[in-house]
Design a protein around this nucleic acid. Structure first.
Lengths: 416, 416
DNA sequence: ATTTTTTTCTCGACAGTCGAGAAATTTAGT
DNA sequence: ACTAAATTTCTCGACTGTCGAGAAAAAAAT
């Protein structure tokens, strides 16, 4: 259904555009903003004075004039305009980061996660405690926290911050919004971890390729298997999705997965699955909860020495991944695939299987093998994805609600 | 990447909105348009007078006033504002339809397709001849044809009207744009047939459910297997895609498919595959080019009588479909599935397999079985999809280019 | 001191939407 | 027959938004 447009919408959109340009390129002068956005200088003036009144951006202090002419006045976001807390949930720890509106990291710590399965209630309490702690440490008032951006592996509700399924808590759902709501007024968003990796890679790619960028998939290999897809939208930025790839069906009635289903991709390509396969344990054995990476390293070493069974385990894993990716490509357009996560260290062993698995499908035979790259530093990408996403959400929120509100209160202060 | 907005864009958008409302609900009065669009009466006046000057809509002749008050003046699209040719390519015929801008069918005929494999060049020539013929028969000038909307089974390029792969011509690509370009100035669009079915069903659903509508998949069963997905977009209408579902990998190293690959879904669920399986022919036999439906009816009859082997063939087909659908659901959100096409007559035999195949995946076990409906009248839906899609494309084009151009020429005429 | 160059800011023109109320036109009531 | 009520369409002025042009500002070069 189409929806009506209005002139105010135009202003909103262009304001968000200005903020996003400012974010992407740092402090910019009037004319540069005009160049990047395509908006006229007059419009930039109007928008920036409005944003400045609303205390969202500020004129940078005079800097030594370089070159002739009237010196530029750089505009930048006000760092203290608002703050963002990033919560990254991984299998063994929860990392909390406090970030200012300009994207600068202010404080960070991790808390070990006890491996007791005592469940979601206790875990949520831990998260609440962690959030309080990071706020206390930095002496920032709670209202200044505009957004809490959370990520986890697993399946996430697309509209609300609800963790629908996770490797840790299974089907025990966690609704972060309601869990934090009485205490925190900030908006809460939740994203799949690999989705954020994909978003970060997509943003990088868009900077390089510009309008040529079409789509990209990120495949994260580790204890579990995640996939994120980012696609260039019609007009409004990027579209991202995090399918339930690790638990997509690889083979009917196949190996038993941690999730209780048989034949998931993860039941062949997750770390525990490779271990199980390398030790020739029956495929319907209930899989280990946690596998030390050192253990897998040993198997990889043997495989590299030419031992048949461990090599076969990696190959099977690769096949499951390749088949799964080929199925994804059958349902989407052709796109490059970036492989990240701790599993990349075994890419030499997985590669042949992945390529063979890909090659078994019609789409790949027709369009050719997709480009595959290995990308390290998954952690950095996750954080980068958080920032990209969270800050642009903040931008929108500020423009949507903030400008009028803050501006109104500013005028009251002036007149009062 | 975000892009700038302007006030003219607002007008364009709202003009398209008015046209689309007019199309959906037929002739409407001023106030009704205002209600449907949410735009104010004044704006409707401005837009409609502009569209009327540009000869895109017209005031309907006075009709008997019902109720008190000033009688309504109904507005409707001008039928002769432009025309549309719909070309539906199926395995045994090509159907040509001439439709006016109000969606009314003016002329239609089908041309048998000779089953010789002489290839794409000859086929394209046939299409050109068919287009000329329908134009001749109706005495409409070629410039009045604004759009040629083509559909086929197979895989279609997402940006250009290029048939990338089809059951008929295989990988022999057909670029309809360049094939028709010197002769026809009209815009050419090409869509997968099942995509149009999905689009039509989606549009129907949106009328019923309104904003509650999220997404829907259409599965077409026949000689080949097609899938169309329609999703509600962020803001601008619906997003539709036609994946290469029939040739998605069902089982590595599985049965030989018509496309030459092994293990495609179609190699289990296409008509020829069911036949092959029912006759216990080895799965690597090169499949029949064309299967008479009567043949399959016989097998179905036997299966319904309780014969094991034919029943098993249908069950295997269902399993392949169910597994494939479960994989699709792993990559998208949960959505209802509408099954169409000639294969629906065997749905009683396929059903158990489909449900079992779906149930083998984690996502279905977690979210529950998706809603499955059987929808007959695929042909009607295909045509309806063509119309929905083509006419809204025309609306956009008219507003984008037409209004200014036509208006300009109108003022010249006035002053001249 | 003047000119040149570069950047920012301001003004008037133009496009779009909206609310209110005038104008048009029919039905109902007396 | 005439008037009042109802309903729809149209018009006007206010408001918001963008843009181009040119004025104003401010530093470097001459």
């Amino acid at each position: 259904m189409l929806t009506k447009s209005s002139t105010e919408l135009v202003r909103q959109r262009n304001s968000v555009l200005v903020l996003s340009v400012l974010r992407r390129h740092g402090a910019l002068a009037h004319t540069e903003i005009s160049d990047f956005t395509g908006l006229s200088s007059a419009t930039i003036s109007a928008i920036t004075t409005e944003l400045e009144k609303a205390q969202i951006i500020e004129k940078s202090e005079q800097q030594p004039a370089s070159g002739r002419g009237r010196p530029r006045v750089l505009l930048r976001q006000r760092r203290d305009c608002g703050y963002l807390i990033v919560v990254i949930i991984s299998s063994d720890a929860v990392q909390y980061s406090l970030v200012d509106y300009a994207g600068k990291l202010i404080d960070r710590f991790s808390e070990e996660r006890s491996h007791d399965p005592s469940g979601a209630v206790r875990f949520v309490a831990g998260v609440r405690a962690g959030l309080s702690r990071i706020l206390d440490r930095s002496k920032i008032s709670q209202e200044k926290v505009l957004l809490i951006s959370i990520s986890s592996k697993g399946l996430v509700n697309s509209t609300e911050p609800v963790l629908v399924w996770s490797p840790i808590f299974g089907s025990e759902q966690i609704d972060f919004e309601s869990a934090l709501r009485p205490e925190w007024q900030a908006k809460v968003i939740l994203d799949n971890e690999t989705l954020l990796v994909a978003a970060a890679l997509g943003a990088r790619e868009e900077i390089v390729k510009g309008a040529d960028f079409r789509a990209l998939a990120a495949l994260s290999l580790g204890h579990s298997v995640g996939l994120g897809i980012v696609r260039r939208g019609n007009q409004t930025g990027q579209e991202i999705s995090a399918p339930n790839f690790g638990h997509m069906l690889h083979m009917a009635n196949g190996g038993l997965c941690r999730c209780g289903t048989r034949g998931c991709i993860e039941a062949y390509a997750g770390f525990y699955a490779i271990l199980r396969s390398a030790f020739e344990v029956p495929l319907d054995t209930i899989p280990a909860k946690f596998v030390p990476v050192a253990e897998l390293d040993k198997i990889a070493a043997k495989a590299r020495q030419g031992h048949r069974v461990p090599a076969f385990a990696f190959r099977q894993a690769g096949l499951a991944l390749g088949n799964g990716l080929s199925r994804m490509l059958s349902l989407t357009e052709r796109m490059p695939i970036a492989i990240t996560g701790p599993g990349t260290r075994y890419y030499d062993l997985l590669r042949q299987g992945i390529e063979e698995g890909l090659g078994q499908s019609h789409i790949v035979r027709m369009e050719g093998m997709p480009e595959i790259r290995v990308v390290a530093d998954e952690q950095i990408l996750v954080f980068e994805g958080h920032l990209n996403r969270a800050l642009s959400v903040i931008d929108e929120d500020i423009v949507l609600s903030g400008v009028q509100g803050i501006q109104a209160s500013a005028t009251i202060q002036e007149s009062g």
